[in-house]
Amino acid sequence: QNEKLANELKSLLDELNVNELATGSLNTYYKRTIKISGQKAMYALKSKDFKKMSEAKYQLQKIYNEIDEA
């Protein structure tokens, strides 16, 4: 289960640069939040902690959705 979550989180991290570029014309909230979420996700992957990875995955998905809707 950890392996599956780690792969999903890696996949979301692969999209980080594209989504970060998409924040160029948006409010600074999005820029700041996506950077923080990305850092948390990288830390969670290194720690291999299921709870941290779950939270990081949720945060990344949430900010990606917010950027898409903005």
Rank of each mutant, 00 (worst) to 15 (best):
S37K: 07
Y30Q: 05
E55A: 09
N2F: 15
Q61Y: 05
G24Y: 10
I67P: 01
A70V: 07
L21N: 06
L60E: 01
D14Y: 08
L9P: 01
K4S: 08
K31F: 07
L13D: 00
S25F: 11
N17T: 13
I36E: 08
Q61K: 07
L13I: 07
K62M: 07
L16W: 08
K62I: 06
S47H: 06
E66F: 07
Q39H: 06
K35E: 08
I67N: 02
Y43R: 13
S37F: 15
I67H: 02
K48Y: 08
Q59C: 14
K40E: 07
D14K: 12
K57D: 01
M42I: 11
L60Q: 00
I67E: 01
A6T: 07
M53D: 00
F50S: 07
I34D: 00
K57E: 02
N27S: 14
G38Q: 11
L13T: 02
E8A: 06
Y43N: 13
G38L: 15
Q59S: 07
S47D: 04
D49G: 02
Y30T: 03
V18D: 09
G24K: 14
Y29L: 04
E66V: 04
N17I: 12
G38E: 06
N17M: 13
I34V: 06
K40H: 06
L13V: 05
K51V: 09
E8C: 15
F50R: 05
Q39R: 13
N19A: 10
E20V: 15
K35I: 10
E3P: 03
Y64C: 04
T28A: 14
K52Q: 10
R32T: 12
T23V: 08
K35Q: 10
L16E: 00
A41F: 02
S47T: 13
S11E: 11
E15M: 15
R32K: 11
Y43H: 14
E55C: 10
N2V: 15
S11A: 13
F50K: 04
M53K: 00
N7R: 14
T33N: 08
T33G: 06
K46Q: 12
N17K: 14
E66N: 04
I67R: 02
S47M: 10
Q1A: 12
L60F: 02
D49N: 08
I36P: 00
K40D: 05
Y30N: 03
T28S: 14
L45A: 02
S47F: 05
Y43G: 08
K62L: 09
D49W: 03
E15I: 12
D68K: 15
D49K: 03
Q59I: 09
A44L: 01
E8K: 04
S54K: 11
K35N: 06
K4H: 07
K31H: 05
N7G: 10
F50T: 06
Y58R: 12
E66W: 10
L5T: 03
N65S: 10
I36T: 06
N27D: 13
I34S: 01
R32L: 11
K57G: 02
N19F: 15
S11T: 11
L5W: 02
L16Y: 14
D49A: 02
V18Y: 14
G24A: 14
T33R: 13
V18F: 12
T33K: 14
L26P: 03
E20H: 09
K10P: 00
D49Y: 02
F50H: 06
T23S: 09
S54G: 05
A56Y: 02
F50A: 07
K51C: 13
A70K: 06
I36L: 09
K52W: 05
K57W: 07
N7I: 10
D49F: 02
F50I: 08
T23A: 15
Y58I: 13
K51H: 09
E66T: 04
I36H: 06
K10Y: 04
L13N: 01
D14E: 11
F50Q: 06
K62P: 00
K31G: 06
D14C: 12
I36Q: 08
S25W: 08
E66R: 06
T23C: 09
K46F: 09
S11M: 13
K52T: 07
E66I: 07
E8L: 05
D14S: 08
A44F: 01
D49T: 02
D49R: 02
A22K: 15
I36G: 03
N27A: 11
T33P: 01
A70W: 11
E69M: 13
I36Y: 08
N19T: 08
N19C: 15
K35R: 10
T33H: 10
A22F: 09
Q1F: 09
L26Y: 04
S47A: 07
A6I: 10
E66K: 06
N65V: 06
S11R: 14
E55H: 06
V18C: 13
G24V: 14
L5N: 01
Q39S: 06
N7E: 12
M53I: 03
G38I: 15
E15F: 14
I34A: 02
K4W: 08
A41Q: 00
A56R: 00
A44P: 01
A70P: 03
Q59P: 01
L21K: 10
T33W: 14
F50C: 04
A44I: 02
N65G: 08
D68E: 14
L9M: 01
Q39T: 08
L5S: 01
L45R: 00
E69K: 13
E3H: 06
L26E: 04
L5E: 02
A22S: 07
E66S: 05
L16V: 03
N2K: 12
I67G: 02
E15T: 07
K35C: 11
E55F: 07
A70R: 08
I63R: 01
L60A: 01
N17E: 13
Q59V: 07
K35G: 04
L26Q: 03
S25P: 11
Q39V: 10
L60I: 04
Q39K: 10
E8P: 01
Y64E: 02
L13G: 00
R32E: 14
K31E: 05
K40I: 11
Q1S: 09
N7M: 13
L13C: 02
L9S: 00
E15P: 02
Y29Q: 03
K35S: 06
L16G: 01
L45G: 01
M42C: 06
K48W: 05
V18S: 11
T33D: 03
Q39G: 04
E3T: 07
K48Q: 09
L45K: 01
R32C: 14
L9W: 00
S47Y: 06
T33L: 15
S54M: 14
Q61L: 12
S25K: 13
A44M: 01
E55D: 08
E69D: 07
K51A: 11
I67A: 02
Q1G: 07
D14Q: 11
S25E: 09
N19M: 15
L13E: 00
K46R: 09
I63F: 03
K31S: 08
Q1P: 09
L21D: 06
T28M: 12
A22L: 14
K40W: 11
Q61E: 11
L60T: 01
K46C: 09
M53P: 01
E3L: 09
L21R: 10
N2P: 06
Y43E: 15
E15Q: 14
T33S: 09
F50Y: 11
L13F: 03
E3R: 07
L45I: 07
S11Y: 07
N19G: 05
G24L: 14
M42H: 08
K57I: 15
L9A: 00
A6C: 06
E3Y: 07
N19E: 05
M42A: 09
N27H: 12
M53F: 02
K4M: 10
E15K: 14
D49S: 07
V18I: 11
M53H: 00
K52E: 13
